[in-house]
């Protein structure tokens, strides 16, 4: 072996840690999105309003099943030792959020499949009549619908918070050292899920209700973002510097323009006019919300890896 350089230049580590590229932000985004969908559809089933709120109960569970599969695919693509992925299921590491997540993802499939079975779309039930008969059996006992709804809400909350805990448990990255990161991702997941429903819902009543809910979630997201920064800014120097990465450092332009302005404030304004019938409802604002949620995950993952205890080279 001929190598002349002896200073460290490890791939993915130097000059700045960048172990996670696009796969993890995509996975975290989809995880939060699906969590929001589970909470919303679970809520309407629990309230016994499946018939009225057709889209959120009828189409969303199937969409969530497809999306979580895509998310898991992204997670798998990120692994460097792919053929050993089964090792996740040979143990349970209590202190590792990733281990919790691996087992949680296994439990998600039956949970989502049962809520999907509660109202199987026609194009599926005509092709596989057995699903239709299962669906009728499930619905014949009213308590089952309620319990399945509640289980979906609980699993959705666990999934949504887990995507944040996954990052905040990694103590070496000051930007992620915030317990409120999981609440931020949960609320962002709820707002993107509500945006998805009011974008594709055909019934006007459902669209308006979900747009109103989305406005509430977006407002909460602004508050949680503020709390996230208050927490970091009132902590030690490294946490303050890591918050500054987003507030006025190298990530500030993307953060303020795409996450805060175009991802939260402008859609909140547009949707507020739409639900008050000042303007017509278009898919523009929900698309902005969804893209804003995606960019939020990218920026948190990227800036988090940039933030560091020792090489505070980003300090102004």
């Amino acid at each position: 072996m001929i190598e002349l350089t002896t200073t460290r230049h490890n791939e993915l580590i130097d000059p700045i840690v960048h172990v996670w590229g696009w796969e993890i932000p995509i996975y975290l985004f989809i995880g939060g999105w699906v969590a929001g969908m589970m909470i919303l559809s679970g809520y309407f089933f629990m309230k016994g309003r499946g018939k009225e709120y057709h889209c959120v109960c009828y189409r969303i569970p199937l969409l969530a099943l497809g999306l979580i599969t895509l998310g898991m695919l992204a997670l798998f693509l990120d692994l460097e030792h792919k053929f050993y992925v089964w090792r996740l299921y040979t143990t349970f590491a209590v202190k590792s959020p990733m281990s919790w997540g691996a087992w949680l993802l296994l439990l998600l499939y039956p949970t989502l499949f049962i809520i999907f079975l509660l109202q199987v779309p026609d194009w599926i039930s005509t092709r596989w009549p057995i699903l239709h008969s299962w669906s009728q059996k499930l619905r014949s006992v009213k308590a089952i619908t309620k319990i399945v709804g509640m289980v979906n809400i609980v699993m959705g909350i666990i999934l949504g918070t887990y995507t944040g805990i996954l990052l905040s448990a990694l103590g070496a990255r000051p930007l992620w050292n915030s317990a409120i990161l999981c609440i931020l991702f949960l609320v962002s997941g709820l707002s993107t899920a509500a945006a998805m429903v009011h974008m594709i819902a055909k019934e006007r009543a459902e669209r308006e209700l979900l747009a109103r809910a989305d406005n509430l979630f977006l407002f909460m997201e602004l508050l949680v973002l503020a709390l996230f920064f208050i927490g970091l800014l009132s902590s030690t120097n490294v946490q303050i510097q890591s918050a500054m990465l987003l507030l006025n450092g190298p990530y500030a332009a993307v953060f303020w323009v795409f996450v805060v302005l175009l991802g939260i404030v402008v859609p909140l304004f547009i949707q507020n006019l739409a639900v008050n019938h000042k303007i017509i409802h278009t898919p523009v604002s929900p698309i902005m919300v969804i893209i804003g949620g995606l960019i939020l995950r990218f920026i948190i993952v990227s800036a988090g890896q940039f933030s560091h205890y020792a090489n505070a080279h980003f300090i102004r």
Partner: peptide, 14 residues
């Protein structure tokens, strides 16, 4: 090891 890289991200010493 599955190569998830959580340990790389969790190490303050890189």
């Amino acid at each position: 090891c599955i190569g998830c890289k959580a340990c790389l991200a969790s190490c303050p010493y890189d």
